[in-house]
Write a protein that binds this DNA or RNA. Structure first.
Lengths: 401, 401
DNA sequence: CTAGCGATTTTGAACGTTCATATGCAATAC
DNA sequence: GTATTGCATATGAACGTTCAAAATCGCTAG
């Protein structure tokens, strides 16, 4: 009402006295306690250079004035932004609901506690993502990048390497064995192998695998875990594999085909929860019950897994831990010390629910990541074929130059 | 192998000639085409001040050198960061899976096409969130904030107002009718009213409501939609309401109680999909089928809704549109023109699936949001959204002072 | 008493922009 | 021919830090 008249304020009454203190600069702090700018700067960046008495005085003044170094000024001077860039995958990507949701949250938390902020951006394609990288880097808005969703023929790592951008990938450099960048990944093979052994323990011998079409590194990895576990158990694998693109419809169709085939599986390990949901659908179509007539294990432990009826056994990725490692690796990279790229593989954990037929434990809802305690109850008797240990991340030494 | 010896590089051979051009500054561009700094600056920020010939020359040089203004330098000088801060809710928050996932993605996309970047951060509590605000603002790392998940007695809007931080809220200022900030929200009442009418159309007369305990603005809103639609239809409402904290267990328990009560509902409108899932559980417990023996409608259309069996009818929020409006409102706010706060309410849309008993449409999977439509994404960086949204949202006039 | 030294603090410059102002130049007005 | 205007471009300063180097202080040693 009152201010309808003029548009550009004549600048008189505008701001009330207001509780907002003028934002403190380093100069103001300096004057406030009678020392020079640089001393304030040192108090923050190299406190050991100050006499204890001075340090105390300065810190108190900083506190009093609520001073924080201006991001822009500092970053202009130091050429470091303390910001990490990370692409958000299109939400459709995680078909069965947000797993990456929790991962990203953990990523932000880890970054912040390491003194970094996360700049999030959306991109629909790899090329678009590269364009954003280019923009962010030219404007010097980020120090480094967290790369997600690596795949065969991925143009992004090469681009980043060529432009000497510090980055760490979530996901192995599929297809380029001697990549020179750091990455963190989840050992899918170990997850599917666990799933196979779990089903074998329950008495299954014909355990199938529902995977993606050739060309997915993630699926190859998980397939390989299935295959080697089957081999190790002396189980035949022919006629037990179905492949298609990811999705519920695919899962349903593939399952039908396998069940109608010459060697119908009694258990099924799936490359994703979407596939597993499809498998459950197919089972329901015949009036069967998942977990009784066909044992099904998914992958990802997406939020739906525990909501489905019967609930879905699934392999859970340690996404919080992975997020933390991605951040600390990137920060290490940014610290400038030249080191050989690290390659970190983390083991996932099978969450047993109803769909695999083991009725022992059917938790209604499970926490999103590893529970703090040693809750490995169900798999008490871990049959160990290979040496993959559960908790310690496996570090693979760089092989070739 | 080769580089096993020394650790700190002696700094000789390290970098190959490399395809990385030295990052261009405004000075370099200026020299490159024989004009002054300021002319380059003008070419970017006020192109109409240049003679066409000069402009052309400069733009070409910019292109050639791949110049982009340094974020830090520009932001130091202009006191604007072109960055928006936004808190990520803990992943557990969206019980049934990532709805906010898609919202956040849309937010980032909208921001970028408006010339802004999004700084994401995690916070567990409101107080922690305020601490992060304080940090970000003191360091001048963001220009403004997108606030999510508003609720009664929310300390955040007050804090932001007091500190004169530009912000827009996703969610109404529950409990403070004459709040002076802008917000965007989804008209929950309209959603539940739609749900009620849908069920009434199917012949139901005893339509219940599963809500949260008193004190949730979101629930009050949705409840109110249910209540007024019932009243408008001349249906009695007594004995048809259950309240508890959100969750599947709650939904199940409440449903049981209602079904065992004196006036068992034949239809149920739920405040959330979690509640609805609980309701489905309760129905299953009695060997009933949702949609046949009890009609159920959820709220949020979370990813599971279409995956459940029977699939869950649910009210879908136009999260992409909301994200876009939040961003454009905030940008308007940041443009500095004093305007009365805008309050935007958008209508959600009921997605009918099996659980409500209307077998007419049972899409397997539905797209996440309204079709994109004539997207404003083409706008060049730094330009602001000019006109208010394309879809004509419903605007509520500011009432009180 | 003074030189010398390390610890502490200060000073001037620079980071890369944009703002405010000044200059140059061409066209118009007197 | 000179003053007046308006447009196009250039110059100096400033934004708020940290870096590099210089200055000062407090001691110990000669």
């Amino acid at each position: 009402m009152v201010e309808t008249g003029g548009d550009r304020g004549s600048g008189a009454i505008r701001r009330l006295p207001s509780a907002v203190p003028p934002r403190a600069t380093i100069e103001m702090v300096a004057r406030h306690c009678g020392v020079s700018r640089q001393t304030i700067s040192n108090a923050i960046n190299a406190p050991d250079r100050l006499r204890p008495a001075t340090l105390h005085k300065v810190l108190q003044a900083i506190e009093e004035l609520g001073y924080r170094p201006s991001h822009a000024a500092r970053s202009l001077r130091t050429h470091a932004t303390n910001v990490i860039g990370c692409r958000l995958l299109p939400s459709s990507h995680s078909g069965t609901g947000g797993v990456l949701d929790g991962w990203f949250h953990a990523l932000c938390a880890a970054a912040r506690s390491g003194g970094y902020d996360v700049l999030a951006f959306a991109a629909a394609t790899d090329d678009e993502e590269i364009e954003v990288y280019d923009d962010l880097l030219r404007r010097r808005a980020v120090d480094g990048i967290i790369l997600t969703n690596t795949h065969y023929l991925d143009p992004r790592p090469a681009w980043l390497l060529q432009h000497e951008v510090p980055f760490v990938a979530f996901g192995r450099p599929w297809g380029s064995a001697n990549a020179t960048h750091s990455w963190v990944d989840v050992d899918g093979a170990s997850g599917t192998a666990d799933a196979v052994r779990h089903l074998a323990d329950l008495g299954h011998t014909r355990i199938g695998f529902l995977g993606l079409n050739k060309g997915s590194g993630v699926c190859d990895d998980r397939f390989q875990g299935w295959a080697s576990a089957m081999r190790a158990l002396g189980l035949a694998t022919t006629g037990l594999v179905g492949r298609a693109e990811d999705g519920i419809a695919s899962g349903r169709a593939l399952t039908e085909k396998l069940l109608d085939g010459p060697r119908p599986p009694t258990g099924l390990v799936c490359v994703s929860d979407s596939m597993a949901v499809g498998a459950i659908r197919a089972v329901e179509d015949r009036g069967w019950i998942a977990g009784r007539d066909l044992a099904i294990v998914g992958f990802d432990d997406s939020p739906i897994a525990s909501l489905l009826r019967p609930s879905l056994s699934s392999v859970r990725q340690p996404i919080v831990a992975v997020a933390g490692e991605l951040v600390s690796e990137l920060i290490a990279e940014l610290s400038g010390v030249k080191r050989r790229p690290s390659r970190i593989l983390r083991a996932p954990r099978l969450i047993v629910r109803e769909s695999s037929g083991d009725r022992l434990s059917t938790p209604e809802i499970t926490a999103f990541d590893e529970a703090p305690g040693p809750s490995h109850s169900v798999l008490a008797r871990r049959s160990h074929f290979d040496t993959k240990s559960q908790q310690t991340p496996e570090r693979i030494k760089k092989k070739g130059a």
